[in-house]
Design a protein around this nucleic acid. Structure first.
Length: 575
DNA sequence: GCCGTTTTCGGCCCGACTGTTTTCAGTCG
């Protein structure tokens, strides 16, 4: 069984939890957590790195000791240290840390005093009223634990960015109307444009925070007030979404925005740079030594410049190497929506879309594109009324006619061709030859074992008419897992053959992930950002694709559909 | 356990809020 980076990270996180609960040196605990993050965010397989005899202790936060432990995990599938820890402390205690309000100290107390070892025994102890009688605990804490257990039961879901945007817009309007309010902005993972957000972090600048807090907690959609202070409050909306509000004075706006945007790991890295320069960086500004005078803080640029860094775009702030890149002046010039010349994946009424060829084309032209590929489904996808050779030939002629009269936009003749189980394509070479491009995708037999799934896709790419691998992992965010496939192998195969990978911009898909995008960049395979639009309004999904691409460090040159039509044609011709 | 224009030891990001306290530990972001 190959050991994935995620497996290694999970083991390190568990070790960290158990060490934490047993009261180990907190910095040692932190070292394991930080190593877990490094491993998770690597973008290349650790197992492969070991095979290629790369020095793991070169990685940030990983020294000689942890490098050895990673090797042990890759070799044996587990870590003797963890087994040893679990023989002394129940491994499930690590689960208890996930309950809101329970940290290592309280979990340890619950274990020692009440013999709580699992979520089940925790629930029993709370229901029996035993927890409230413990020293340092009380009625409220016990109640909070029961509520926390409930949430774990329900399976805490993150919400998609597109949904968060709608919720945020209304709430922002409400806060903006408050007296004396200046800036109102959503920070956190929302501003970093993560595909899903766990909560909303709103930053407000205002002289008197108390007014804002009253207005915030009185918002009609608030279900529960978790905490309320002068500068910070937390509520839960009826949708279950947690919202944090932070109020700071205008002079601290940049520092607070930086602090509140995160990620936490990025902030820590920046603050560490501050420490080296004897600077204290917090949400109110940048301060020298023990002095009270603020050196910077009005803008984010000011904060960065105090630690000799250029401005870093929010999408990059994950501590995935952006600090090092910034220090070397090698930050990527991230792609923007304006860089795109067209959309290369769209459907019409002919299969499962809602608009006609002409409606889609005109709508794409209105968005300033110079080309749009129509890629309706192929016959195997019967649910979507997929097209056979005959119907596709008809559509091709229709597109030719429309192209003659349409000004300013070229419709490209395409097809979303199903990749069959054996790796062959769902349409004959004869008809594929009449197209400008193909967008090929797996729709069925998603459960194939990893090796077979990978071989199936790579075999499909051997067909010279294969251009773009659409939604490469088939996942639906928070709904359906990706199928098991060796994406690294697929990307390398695509590069060798002159194929491309789609970044599907639909907010339910965003397939590739941010990390996948970064891997594509590292491997050198070009990415196509496409909407998979089934209607004219769907064409607006492009911005979600761009957010994701930016999170994956992609620059205009890394993306196929930033090319002019002429260049595009050249790149699509494999033979 | 990591790391080093503080370099092989002694540091390790910083502040707000809650609950259970009577001055603060624990947790969170």
């Amino acid at each position: 069984m190959p050991v994935h980076n995620r497996d290694i990270a999970e083991i390190f996180k568990k070790v960290a939890d158990l060490l934490d609960i047993t009261g180990s040196n907190p910095f040692r605990v932190r070292a394991y957590r930080s190593a877990a993050r490094t491993v998770e965010g690597l973008g290349q397989s650790i197992a492969d790195m070991i095979e290629e005899e790369e020095d793991l202790s070169e990685l940030p936060g990983i020294g000689k000791d942890l490098a050895e432990k990673i090797k042990e995990i890759v070799d044996t599938g587990n870590l003797s240290q963890l087994e040893e820890l679990e023989s002394r402390t129940p491994g499930e205690l690590s689960q208890l840390m996930k309950i809101e309000g329970l940290g290592p100290k309280r979990v340890s107390t619950l274990y020692k005093q009440l013999d709580v070892t699992s979520l089940k025994t925790l629930k029993k102890a709370a229901e029996d009223g035993k927890i409230s009688r413990l020293e340092g605990f009380g009625e409220k804490t016990q109640q909070k634990i029961l509520e926390g257990l409930q949430r774990v039961d329900e399976g805490e879901k993150r919400i998609k960015l597109v949904v968060a945007e709608e919720i945020a817009a209304n709430l922002l309007d409400h806060i903006q109307e408050g007296k004396g309010v200046k800036e109102v902005v959503v920070a956190g993972s929302y501003r970093r444009r993560k595909e899903t957000v766990g909560d909303l972090d709103i930053l407000v600048t205002c002289k008197k925070g108390a007014h804002v807090m009253d207005r915030f907690t009185a918002y009609e959609d608030v279900n529960k007030i978790v905490s309320k202070g002068k500068t910070r409050s937390t509520v839960v909306l009826r949708s279950g979404l947690h919202v944090d509000l932070r109020v700071v004075p205008q002079v601290s706006y940049g520092a607070a925005l930086h602090y509140f945007t995160g990620s936490k790991a990025h902030n820590i890295a920046v603050r560490k740079l501050g420490v080296k320069r004897k600077l204290k960086i917090n949400e109110y500004g940048v301060f020298k030594g023990g002095e009270k005078a603020r050196m910077a803080g009005r803008t984010e640029e000011e904060v960065y410049s105090q630690v000799a860094l250029p401005y870093i775009e929010p999408e990059l702030r994950e501590d995935w190497g952006e600090i090092e890149a910034a220090q070397k002046d090698q930050l990527p010039q991230l792609v923007t929506l304006d860089d795109l010349r067209g959309d290369l994946h769209a459907h019409t009424k002919e299969t499962d879309g809602h608009h006609t060829l002409e409606e889609m084309a005109r709508s794409a032209r209105d968005r300033g594109y110079s080309y749009l590929a129509i890629t309706d489904h192929s016959k195997r996808v019967t649910m979507a009324h997929g097209m056979d050779k005959k119907r596709l030939s008809k559509q091709i002629k229709k597109i030719d006619r429309l192209n003659e009269k349409l000004k300013g936009l070229t419709i490209l003749k395409g097809s979303e061709v199903d990749i069959l189980k054996d790796g062959s394509l769902d349409l004959s070479d004869e008809i594929l030859d009449a197209l400008d491009l193909t967008v090929c995708a797996v729709h069925y037999d998603r459960k194939l074992p990893r090796k077979e799934q990978t071989e199936r896709i790579i075999k499909a790419m051997d067909n010279p008419y294969f251009n773009i691998l659409a939604h490469p992992t088939g996942r639906l965010i928070e709904e359906r897992q990706a199928y098991d496939v060796d994406l690294e192998a697929v990307m390398k195969a695509a590069k060798e053959r002159g194929c491309f990978l789609e970044l599907n911009a639909h907010p339910d898909r965003l397939d590739l992930t941010d990390r996948d995008c970064k891997m594509a960049k590292d491997i050198g395979v070009k990415v196509v950002v496409s909407t998979d639009a089934h209607s004219i309004t769907d064409l607006d999904f492009m911005r979600f694709g761009i957010y994701q691409a930016r999170r994956g460090w992609l620059e205009p040159d890394d993306i196929l559909n930033t090319r002019s039509l002429k260049q595009l044609w050249k790149l699509l011709r494999r033979k």
